[in-house]
Nucleic acid binder design. Structure first.
Lengths: 150, 150
DNA sequence: CAGATAAGTCAACATGGCTGACATAAAAAG
DNA sequence: CTTTTTATGTCAGCCATGTTGACTTATCTG
């Protein structure tokens, strides 16, 4: 039990170490990575949705999001149905940053998956899903909707 | 792949949320939790060993460790063979804090393990072990492997 | 129109990383 | 025995990123 707790600590520590080094080149931190990741995964998401995922205040988010927008990694445009919303999307430059940041993480997870085998990957997913507290967040992982092209 | 990355983010976020609330009662932060956890798991560990695990600077560690010592959660005593070392140990008060902090985590992980089943737990361990970069850190988790044909 | 909501902003503050410089005691090396 | 290295502690300051609280603007909704 306590071993499981400790595994999470070590895995998360090493999981974030490589991207952190890349972020430092840009003068960014882990918070920027999280924004770039989620905006990349959910194009056209609203600021409110992002706040709900990250569980931070809008003042904290705006500091990093503002930097990303001003430096051309993220663009915002007015929502169609609700013009109060600012829909978020990565620019080409933002997608390039996302790719660089996620590359070592994808490699690390891919190696771990390959070494552990398919059954272990299923178990990994099941346990982590069980650790996630929020039902809505768990639903994100219910199944993989195929990428839609429009 | 990217789903696995995201699972780690959400699980770690929810995994740390409950202890964080308890820590706030004491005016402590997540850094104090890490120290209390590892000192609790490895009584008589040295400051240097703790630094190696946490991968932070001694200045950062001393800020939180100093508070824990001054407030009577941790005691230090001189090493027997090497008297330069300050061996760390929890006091009764420290053990009580550790117990309170780990209780929601143990409950959360226990529920997740129970819901996922024993095979899933094995997979969870294998994958997280694969994500850990450092060989010495992986060795901490030497476990009795189940009979397994490959 | 009135009130609620999405987003942005300003100010102040806390935590916990970091670097760099320096101090002390004890061990290890010569 | 003297010198060097190691383990630890400490001071000072910087930075990233979280917080609360107050307030604005634009827009949607009843």
């Amino acid at each position: 039990m306590r071993q499981g707790i400790e595994l999470l600590f070590f895995a998360y520590r090493d999981f974030t170490a490589e991207p952190d080094a890349i972020l430092a080149e840009y003068g960014f931190g882990r918070a920027h990575h999280r924004v770039v990741h989620f905006v990349g995964r959910h194009p056209q998401m609203t600021v409110g949705e992002l706040l709900g995922i990250l569980r931070i205040t809008k003042q904290s988010l705006n500091r990093v999001l503002g930097q990303l927008v001003r430096q051309g990694f993220v663009v915002q445009h007015q929502g169609a149905q609700d013009r109060r919303q600012r829909l978020l999307e990565l620019t080409d430059k933002g997608r390039e940053l996302e790719r660089r940041l996620s590359a070592p993480q994808r490699a690390r997870v891919a190696d771990a998956f390959r070494a552990a085998g398919g059954a272990a990957v299923d178990g990994f997913r099941k346990v982590l899903l069980g650790i996630i507290a929020d039902e809505d967040d768990r639903r994100r992982f219910a199944w993989r909707p195929p990428p839609r092209r429009e």
